[in-house]
C-alpha cells in the first residue's frame, strides 16, 4: 500500500490516579505516517505534550512486537483496535485514514481498576496463575526432550492455548467482564500435556476459585472474547475447562 500521512483527532481517556473520576480529552495530531504503529503515534503525541509542559498520556507497553501482552487500549469500541489477531502495538496507522477521529479508552472491568490514564492493574491475572497455573512436579535432571510421548494433535492444541499472552482483551470485550478465556487457555495448555496431568483437578478448582474472588463475571458464551483475542485463542478451551471443572468436582478426593 502507498505510504501516506494523515491528520487525526484523538479522544483519549485521562485519569490522574485510581481515585480520580477521569474524563475524555481531545487532541489533534498531524503528519502521522501510515507506516507508524499505533503506539508510535502516541509517542509523537506524548513528545509534543512534554514540550508543551503537559503531562504525557500514560499507557502500558513493553516488547512492541506483539508477544508480551502489556499493551491494552480499547480503540474505537474494540480491544486492540480494528484488526483481527493483532495487539495494539502491532496495529499500524494504515488502518486509519486522514481526518479520522479515534476514541481510546482503557480496559473496563471492576477487576482491572484504572491506575492512570490508559494503564489498568491486571495483577488479578497474576494471582489466578499463582493459584494453580503452573506445574510443581519435581523434574530432577533435565530429561531427554522425546522421553515422554505426546500426540502431535494434543501438542499443537496445547501450544495454541499456551500462545495466550494474558493481555486481558477477553475481559475487556466480554459483556460480563469474564476472564474465562484467559483461565481456560492456561488450564487447557497444561491439562493437555502429560506434565500437567498430576495436578489437573486442584489446578482448575483453585484457579476458578481465585478468578471468582477477583471479581470477574461469569461466562455466557457470547464469543466476543475469541473475536478480539490477539492470539486467536479458541473459545473451545472454555468448554474444555468446563469439562475439567466438572470432572474435578465429581471425582476429587476431598
Amino acid at each position: 500500500m502507498e505510504h501516506y500521512t494523515m491528520n487525526l483527532t484523538l479522544k483519549v481517556w485521562r485519569q490522574k490516579n485510581k481515585k480520580d473520576n477521569g474524563h475524555f480529552e481531545t487532541y489533534s495530531v498531524s503528519g502521522i505516517s501510515s507506516e507508524m504503529s499505533f503506539l508510535e503515534m502516541f509517542d509523537v503525541l506524548n513528545e509534543r505534550l512534554v514540550v508543551e509542559g503537559k503531562e504525557p498520556i500514560a499507557f502500558d507497553h513493553d516488547c512492541r512486537e506483539g508477544i508480551c501482552g502489556m499493551c491494552s487500549m480499547y480503540i474505537n469500541g474494540r480491544p486492540h483496535g480494528p484488526w483481527e489477531g493483532t495487539t495494539t502495538c502491532q496495529l499500524h496507522m494504515r488502518a486509519f485514514k486522514d481526518g479520522d477521529t479515534i476514541v481510546v479508552e482503557p480496559w473496563r472491568a471492576n477487576a482491572f481498576p484504572v491506575v492512570k490514564d490508559l494503564v489498568v492493574d491486571r495483577s488479578a491475572f497474576d494471582r489466578i496463575i499463582q493459584a494453580g497455573g503452573f506445574i510443581s512436579v519435581n523434574t530432577g535432571n533435565a530429561v531427554d526432550a522425546n522421553a515422554i510421548p505426546i500426540e502431535k494433535d494434543k501438542a499443537d492444541t496445547a501450544f495454541a492455548a499456551a500462545a495466550c499472552i494474558g493481555c486481558g482483551a477477553c475481559v475487556a470485550a466480554c459483556k460480563n467482564s469474564s476472564a474465562l478465556l484467559f483461565v481456560s487457555a492456561k488450564v487447557s495448555h497444561l491439562a493437555l500435556l502429560p506434565q500437567g496431568d498430576p495436578e489437573r483437578k486442584a489446578r482448575v478448582v483453585d484457579m476458578i476459585a481465585q478468578m471468582d474472588k477477583e471479581g470477574f463475571g461469569s461466562c455466557t458464551s457470547t464469543g466476543a472474547c475469541e473475536a478480539v483475542c490477539p492470539k486467536e485463542i479458541s473459545i473451545t478451551n472454555i468448554a474444555r475447562l468446563n469439562a475439567e471443572y466438572a470432572r474435578a468436582g465429581l471425582t476429587t478426593d476431598k
Partner: peptide, 10 residues
C-alpha cells in the same frame, strides 16, 4: 465504554 463493542464479535 464510550463506544460499546455491540455486534463486533458477538
Amino acid at each position: 465504554y464510550q463506544i460499546p463493542m455491540a455486534n463486533r464479535g458477538s
